[in-house]
């Protein structure tokens, strides 16, 4: 399996989309750092960009990669090797390749411009988010045979998780503002990996503002190690659970 991961990983690294992603992230980060005289603002812009780009590219690319590898997967499945190993190899290879792309595209400028803790934080958040998005994309594509339909569904899901979901939360809060919604809101946030990554970044960048919120639960949540443990714990679940679903479907699937 390590060899299989290695070869798929190398194949993906040479892929045009991945190279373009790296170059794009690198160029934008570089320009932002150069353009903004104060690096904290550049950092904020990069964070915002990373939160949009990472899930989008991870999900779409994972879906495209899955469909393009279909014949290869079929061929490999004719070999004495389990389906679990094949799908895991594809997953890990993708995860590693996108991690490398993010490290090169975001990590390098962050090192060059010495962003310190904030830079490390950005990477420790976006990389698990990328893995989670790959797992989610797999859980969908494994269940949809048609390539266009599969990619379309993944794209829709990205749009939903990035934008519509937050709109629904906002709407809920407007309409139920008389009720204590703290726990429900935290629960809703936990149900969306992109929101979770965003909250984890907020815990670093906006803790001063978050401490202004009066609710005891939020305060406990944001003001302690508990918040970090919670966001990363759930983010980890957001990798494991979709991957489990993908494996489960893939196991029973007709290739």
């Amino acid at each position: 399996m390590p060899k299989l991961i290695l070869y798929i990983f190398r194949d993906i690294l040479r892929n045009k989309i991945v190279i373009a992603l790296s170059i794009f992230l690198f160029a934008v980060s570089f320009v932002l750092f150069n353009l903004e005289e104060n690096s904290s603002k550049a950092m904020l812009s990069i964070l915002n960009m990373a939160l949009i780009i990472t899930p989008l590219i991870s999900m779409i690319f994972a879906a495209i990669h899955y469909y393009n590898s279909y014949e290869f997967i079929e061929l490999m499945l004719a070999q004495p090797i389990s389906r679990k190993k094949i799908l895991s190899s594809e997953f890990f290879a993708l995860g590693l390749a996108l991690s490398v792309a993010l490290l090169a595209g975001l990590g390098l400028p962050l090192i060059i411009y010495q962003s310190g803790i904030d830079g490390i934080w950005l990477l420790t958040t976006t990389i698990p988010l990328a893995w989670s998005c790959i797992a989610i994309a797999f859980a969908i594509t494994v269940n949809i045979r048609d390539k266009a339909k599969g990619i379309g569904t993944v794209l829709l899901l990205w749009f939903y998780l990035s934008l519509i979901y937050d709109g629904l939360i906002l709407f809920t809060m407007f309409s139920l503002s008389d009720y204590p919604l703290e726990k429900i809101t935290l629960g809703l946030i936990a149900l969306n990996p992109i929101d979770l990554a965003r909250v984890s970044i907020m815990l670093k960048m906006d803790v001063s503002a978050l401490m202004g919120y009066t609710g005891a639960l939020y305060k406990h949540f944001f003001g302690s190690v508990y918040g970090f443990a919670f966001t990363f714990g759930i983010l980890l679940l957001w990798i494991i659970v979709p991957l489990f679903i993908a494996h489960h479907s893939f196991q029973k699937k007709d290739i």
């Binding site: 194949d11 014949e71 290869f72 061929l75 004719a78």
Partner: peptide, 9 residues
């Protein structure tokens, strides 16, 4: 297989 495609790279 009838169509055996491998990863391009």
């Amino acid at each position: 297989p009838q169509i055996g495609r491998f990863p391009d790279h």
